[in-house]
Nucleic acid binder design. Structure first.
Lengths: 247, 247
DNA sequence: AAGTGGTCTAGACCACTCA
DNA sequence: GAGTGGTCTAGACCACTTA
């Protein structure tokens, strides 16, 4: 009798479930379709709801599913490609089919990690501009842009001390600088409360954190910390001269 | 009486736990130190073990903790910066303090997504080279490099049909091509079984998937799909001419 | 008000590491 | 073999959306 490798490697149930569901999504479901609810699915597969949820969580992490409390679980569309490597997509002023929307502005001390990148002493206040990025009219990123006060001197005349008007004023001043180049890093994080609200997600949901340093006039002109929805986004970097990675 | 916003927003327990633990990690623990075990921690905070684990999972996702079955939970070192944007760090031949190690080579049909990027018909076999990337003698990435057979013609003479020798032969042939440029995308994924083993992680653990297209002689010369450990890595992209984002 | 996903509990057993 | 984290169960209640 051919030993058909039965239980040599006892695969976890949720892992096997994930495989089964992935295949089902590929073959039997259309984008946007609603899946049966969790209690029903768990019963159908003969597992506890917590186990089923473990499989669903992974599928959501991989961008295959979208779950919304009070609504249900739907099949997610393919991830959208979001360009982050090109200057024109982040340096203020770039405006295309998808672009940034200034939300607010404050003047306060940045996190120590940001202060270090800006070569500033801890506790020194900077202009902190909050922006939202939308693609296909869906919010994909929440950003905090930190600008040392010395880099935008012409700002005293602006009457609004905070708010979107102030944010736009800071961005306008920034554009007067000639950009030398930039630096980026991507890492995994979890959404803080404010970012989560902006992204229409629950706090703690996985995000891709893109930290960008902008250089101008021989120093670091600004630092941006942008959090992208990890479930819906694929970040693209590329030679703009070359054919685009399919989005 | 000042309404001190008591329970207007009933924060989930695991979320609050995460905050408390984060502060404790910052102030009371050193890198590498072992935390009390999960049952003990849960008892100490007066929550069920599952709830505690939800907090620990998020902290591990954020790279603050490292958990190993049979061993315990330790405080993780800061993430290492791994350069992925520069050609010399991925195009075969680049060798520095951290570099790639050829593991194996097969000739088989790639996933359909890769076939599409290579402009190949579905089912057409390509050279599939598996490599591992190490930094500070720790595995950080597992890569599959797909090379259409037509792009490395001088390969018939190699005796080894598979294995590391064959992999090195393919890479050597690739180096003869002059690279025009490349294209990259980063997204969140979960480690498949083989990658997980290579990265010394459990299957399903979160990874950053970097897809790179290499262009040479007017066409796509190769496609690389590299999965980086999301818990330990920060991927860096940058103008090589500029000061480095602290690693 | 009904139905959904999100949180939480108090247990149990398993796979793994290491002395 | 003792101790760790990983998996799994069968419940309960809550927050949210929609009708």
């Amino acid at each position: 009798m051919g030993t058909t490798q039965l239980d040599t490697v006892p695969e976890p149930k949720y892992w096997h479930l994930k495989t089964v569901l992935t295949d089902a999504l590929d073959s039997e479901f259309a984008v946007g379709e609603i899946l049966p609810n969790e209690r029903e699915l768990a019963a159908r597969f003969g597992v506890a709801r917590a186990t089923l949820r473990q499989a669903l969580e992974q599928l959501e992490l991989e961008g295959r599913l979208q779950r919304r409390r009070g609504v249900g679980t739907t099949v997610a569309p393919p991830r959208v490609g979001v360009a982050v490597g090109d200057t024109e997509h982040s340096w203020p002023g770039g405006s295309g089919p998808d672009s940034w929307l200034a939300v607010d502005c404050a003047t306060e001390a940045p996190p120590v990690a940001v202060a270090r990148l800006l070569d500033l002493g801890e506790g020194e206040p900077v202009h902190t501009v909050r922006r939202t990025r939308c693609t296909h009219s869906q919010p994909v990123a929440a950003e905090l842009l930190y600008v040392p006060q010395g880099n935008v001197p012409g700002l005293a005349a602006v009457d609004a001390p905070t708010g979107a008007a102030r944010a736009r004023a800071v961005l306008r001043e920034l554009q007067r600088l000639e950009l030398d180049g930039h630096d980026q890093a991507v890492e995994l994080g979890s959404a803080r409360a404010e970012d989560a609200k902006q992204l229409d997600r629950l706090p703690g949901s996985p995000v891709l954190v893109v930290t960008t340093r902008y250089f101008a006039e021989g120093r670091t002109a600004a630092v941006s910390v942008a959090t992208y929805r990890a479930d819906t986004c694929r970040l693209t970097f590329g030679d703009p001269s070359l054919p685009l990675l399919a989005s």
